[in-house]
Design a protein around this nucleic acid. Sequence first.
DNA 1: AATAGTGCTTGCGAATTACAAGTGCAAATA
DNA 2: TATTTGCACTTGTAATTCGCAAGCACTATT
Lengths: 141, 141
Amino acid sequence: MKQIERRSDCPISLSLDIFGDKWTLLILRDFIFFDNRHFNELVTIEKISTNILADRLNRLLENDIVKKEVDRNNKSSYLYSLTEKGIDLIPIVIEIYKWGANNIDGNNANSEFKNEVNSNFNKVTSEIVDRIKTTHNNGYK
Amino acid sequence: MKQIERRSDCPISLSLDIFGDKWTLLILRDFIFFDNRHFNELVTIEKISTNILADRLNRLLENDIVKKEVDRNNKSSYLYSLTEKGIDLIPIVIEIYKWGANNIDGNNANSEFKNEVNSNFNKVTSEIVDRIKTTHNNGYK
DNA sequence: AATAGTGCTTGCGAATTACAAGTGCAAATA
DNA sequence: TATTTGCACTTGTAATTCGCAAGCACTATT
C-alpha cells in the first residue's frame, strides 16, 4: 500500500486523499447499511478484488477510521468496526445516498427510506449513528 | 474518456461511479469555494493535469452536473457552471469539508467557518446554495 | 502578419487496477 | 492423526489509468 501524498492542506483535498476513490466509501456503505464487517462479507457485494479490499482496509486502519479485532464468535475471523472518526463519516455516506437516489436514473433506492432521508435527514442520520455506535463499540455482532 | 460501467444499482455505488475519484469533488470545491469557473483557473490549484481536468469536466458535462457556454465577458473562453444536479452536490462537499476540518491534523480550515459549519450546517449550506444559484443561472461571472 | 491567451489533445513512461491463483493459519471433520 | 474447510490475505501478471511535457487549433489583440 502506498500512502497518497498530501496535495494541499485544504480539508476537502485531505479528505479525498483518504477516501476519494471508487471503493472506500462503498466499504463504509457495507458497514453502515448491510452490517458487513468481515473480509469475506465485504468482498462479495460489488465484486471488489481482494487485493484492493485489503489495501483499502489497511488505509482505513492507518487513518484510524476502522479498527480490527478477533471476532469473539469465530476466533479464526477478524471483525472490523468503525471508530468515532469512521462514524463521523456517516453523514457523508448518507448525503451521497440521497444525491444518488434523487438524481440518478435506474437506482434501486427504497422509496420509503428515500423519502425519510429527504424530509428528515438529521433524524435518519442520528438514528443510524446511534445504532452503529452501540454495535461497533463492543466488538460484538 | 471511458464511461465507467455500472457496478450495481445502489445509489451510492452509482454516485461513486460518477464522482468517486481523487479529482472530481475537488473541481466542485473550486466552483463552490473559489468561484473558479474557467479551464485555466481550475487547472492551477492542486496542479491537476490538463488531460485529467478535461476528462473530468467532460464526465461532469455528460452527467449533466455542469454546463458549458461561451463566456460573455471573454468570447474566446468557456465558462463552466453548475446545473441543478450539480448544485445538489453542495451538501456532500460541505460534509466532506466538515469531516476533514474536524478529523485531519494540519488542515487549514478557517476556524470561524469551521465553527459555523459545525453548529449551523443547514444554514451555511443553504446560503452557499443560494449564492451559487444566482451566479450560475445566468452564465455570468 | 505576428503574438498571446485559452482550451484542449497527444505521446509516453510510471503507477494503479482487476483478475486469477496461491499461501498461511486455525478450526472442523474423517 | 491426517485431511479438509474457511478465512484473510499476498503474489503475479496483463490491462488500464495517471501524470507530466509538449503540441495543436482557435480567437482576440497588437
